[in-house]
Amino acid sequence: MPSSACTQFLTWFTMNTEKDKNKTRRDFFKVSATVVTGIAINSVFVKPSMVQAENEKENIKIPDFDKWYGFGIDIDKCIGCGNCAKACKIENDVSQEPFYFRSWVEYYVIKDDETIKIESPNGGIDGFKQSVPPDEIEKSFFVPKTCNHCAKSPCEQVCPVGATFLSPEGVVLVDKKYCIGCGYCVQSCPYGCRYISPITHTVDKCTMCYHRLKKGLPPACVEACPTGARIHGDLHDKEGELVKFMKEHNCRVLKPHLNTKPKLHYNSLNEKVI
């Protein structure tokens, strides 16, 4: 019975193909074989992302499980020029409007009467003017701020859709295609490092210039800093620049009591900095 069905099918097939004189059964098998092989090869060898293949040529792994990135900031070297904040906005297409910052600089003035004035006009991009007369100042300094890329980040924990995550390199990233813009993470960040982008209407934050790191370049803020106050490096690399900086200086992190394990290490950070 099956053989007769087969014969019937073949007869029908032959009759149909005979209409098209140019094509034979052999041609049909040839085409079929090519298509099937093509699909098989495609599914086995071609990965969904060609980007990955491109970057692997340069021996840069995406992601790299051996790295654990962090930042170092030397307040003794920060002159409050705002070049880091400016470069960050350019590099990452951040809205030029004030109040949207991935990276910004704060100017702390501790007065004689122990009151503290904190300023950050346009995130420090346009520079700072001394607003308190010198005879009233006890101490003043600049504090550059950005995402702390916490190892135990609250923002990652509250995201209801898994759009915020800690990459294997220790960089807190946002999947903009998956973010629903609910703003939970904006509220949960104790360092105020997140905002809802007026352009994409999803959350936006410092990516540690992940796209630059994967091209072997330092983050834009580090590239733009004129005094070398910003240091970026791998915390696993014991001979690296960042680990050396942390060995040579007494570094502190912001809000250590929250146990968020920040990876933004400040040298000469005043206790008044919040």
Partner: peptide, 23 residues
């Protein structure tokens, strides 16, 4: 692929264009 998120999200972010050149 790497955790509770889209693995391709990492690749997409890594593929963004740079504005500041290599010195």
């Amino acid at each position: 692929e790497f955790g509770h998120y889209r693995g391709n999200a990492i690749r997409e972010i890594a593929a963004l264009e740079t504005k500041y050149a290599d010195i």
